[in-house]
Design a binder for these strands. Structure first.
Lengths: 224, 224, 224, 224
DNA sequence: CATGAATGAGTTTTCATTCAT
DNA sequence: GATGAATGAAAACTCATTCAT
């Protein structure tokens, strides 16, 4: 390094040193950096929103140089898309677990609702990105096929189809519309929970909301 | 100062008050200009998304100079917020009509669903802005109370409360959670319809979806 | 000096104030700004080279804001191309004058040589840009047809054709190859003159070089 | 420090000396690497232009790692300068051959022209770099003496001086100006040939151009 | 010697906003 | 009120260069 204007390189060492400790653990050096960037991106996107988030913020939060992000992702857009793919995969895994664990369609649907909201509760930032930012940019909704979300809908619809086949569920409802409606409801509840300010009065209790959403979608609102 | 470090959202009142002074004069050409700008903004926001929309595009679409927009709205953010307020008011009027027209709670809810999706079908751009951009505006929501949306939820919840009082609806469901869930489902269905590319296969028929959504929320999915 | 610490952008006000004084003079406000940017670009490109020139340098030299340049030119590339077109037009005007003034082909060619080198001498920066930067970027040579330069060649070739028709010039030489060769020689002499450091020994005298170049191209090097 | 504010060109000697140590060992694989990098650089500079060429492209084309280039060359600038030195040496060898082979000055000059254009035809990429980038490198020339090009001029001028001494060539023409003019003409013709797109109509035939250029510089354009 | 992942300074370009007319 | 030319801050992204392995 030339002396000229030894701009402070040193500012980033601290973080990097920390990162390098990881080398002790068995299997992460290459993938570790990608993952750290994704983690950082979730935090920053959740806090600032996609458009207001600066790549340099993400880099700083990840403890890497700005340019490093571009070694792993083509662009800021690409970073968001990869985030979705990665995290949606977890949502889908959740879903599959629900389906596999339970045998009756009704139990499956109740469990899906519960697990989804638990996931939201336990991964606030991730939920924020998925609920808020996924929808945000028509760019990502339209120009990007979003296969993981399609899988989400398909899985739910599949459970409904099966329930209809066995006679457990009634047949008048289109499974695909149901899946959309359920996701919309879950997402809106999640959003309500996310958005509520710390000091807000009208707090939504996610476990209770899960209970109620299960009741509502299974039994409807009508008195009997 | 430029807005580039725009931390502060909202604060939209002052200028609008000024704009509204014109309401005093009978044949309101200036108010016509405000309206033209809002119309243009809907089109442009729907087509480009809020962040990708350029103020000059909106100005051009409205047939005014760029600077003129700032005579009616404090900022681009403020324009979006005003858009919501204005258009949400229509959604709420829709809602009130449904409530007033029908007497039974169930009929009210079915009508709400139907009217909402009809509104979407007939005002595609406006629906796009509300469904897609409102979400993104949860960023806004944090700093901006969004009273019109609150009113939306309150109206639905009110209908449910009334239905529960008369015994027409069962009491286990929290009216506020129901309102959220219903809005989420409606919004998601609207989005699915909006997003479907011209050549897409899985077309959603909005009237049919309204029917099904009504059934689902009233009677549930369970076979009887 | 490096621009390393170029933190302070704001220092540009002084210049702008100066620029605005111009408004007093009769006929320049709109075109004046474009011209000022071109003038500034010539200076900066000549001093730094196209690739090393910063748009902000040009803006500063022109006494306008960075963004203003983009109101008149699509990009930095576009600015260079416009510069060529504009200035080459002067070169061509020069040429046409030579052709029109003189009647014999030989006198025309001698005059072209003389005028061209005089132009170089009197417009050092412009010559630099044309000689050095025109060639520089294959981008501009290949992807851009350069009609003004084509015109230059055509004009010279035309004079030769005419001289050959009248029998004043011999016919063995292809007029287009001649035009190229003459331009190359002129350009190289210009470059030699431009590049010579202030304190260099081997100074080229442009008027003398013009004389010699005329002799060379008309009579050749062979003794008779 | 990064080179971004790279004011200082040249300074290219140190490292190269190191590289040349390897000449001691008989089967020079490391020197082979230097040569491979130069070959690759020619291709890439010719195809992209100096400023648009990326060091990593060159590294890839040479089959070495990016960092390896910096073991042989101090910087990207240094690489270009070394390229000139190396390849210009061939041009000069060409020249000397012409001088030595022929005895009369006129024959020497004709042969120089012919050999030069043959060289261009047979080493297209190298010609491109020299013709196009050398010009741009007049930027370099200012800080870098370009001794090989100086040698080129000196050789030609020497031949002229000798011809003038013997009375074969007339004495009115300054040998140095002649050398410049000849080089300029050759270079321009080379450029015209290089730039002509594959499908272009006005194709220049290099052998024919050589013939004509010889005639022109020896006998002039005037009819006799 | 060789590697190539990581760095981070630097630059073009955009566009919300202003303000002189 | 209306205009729209001008502003200039901001940020994504690039890429020559370094250096730990």
């Amino acid at each position: 390094m030339n002396n000229h204007s030894a701009r402070s390189r040193s500012k980033s060492n601290g973080k990097r040193a920390v990162a390098k400790k990881k080398d002790a653990s068995p299997a992460s050096p290459p993938e570790g950096k990608r993952e750290r960037i994704l983690e950082a991106a979730i935090k920053v996107f959740a806090a600032e929103g996609f458009y207001n988030a600066k790549v340099s913020q993400i880099a700083q939060a990840a403890g890497v140089a700005d340019g490093t992000i571009y070694l792993y992702f083509k662009s800021k857009d690409d970073l968001l898309i990869n985030l979705f793919e990665d995290r949606m995969e977890r949502v889908n895994a959740n879903l599959r677990e629900a389906i596999e664990t339970e045998t009756s369609a009704i139990a499956q649907l109740r469990r899906i609702v519960r697990l989804h909201l638990e996931l939201v509760e336990q991964n606030r930032d991730m939920a924020e990105v998925i609920s808020v930012e996924l929808r945000q940019s028509s760019k990502f909704i339209r120009e990007y096929a979003n296969p993981k979300f399609a899988e989400f809908l398909r899985t739910i619809a599949g459970a409904v189809v099966e329930g209809q086949r066995t006679g457990e569920l009634r047949t008048g409802i289109d499974p695909y519309i149901f899946a959309r409606a359920l996701f919309g409801a879950l997402d809106e509840i999640a959003l309500a929970w996310l958005v509520k300010q710390p000091g807000s009065k009208a707090t939504i209790e996610l476990p209770r909301a899960a209970e109620q959403l299960g009741d509502l979608f299974i039994d409807g609102l009508k008195a009997r």
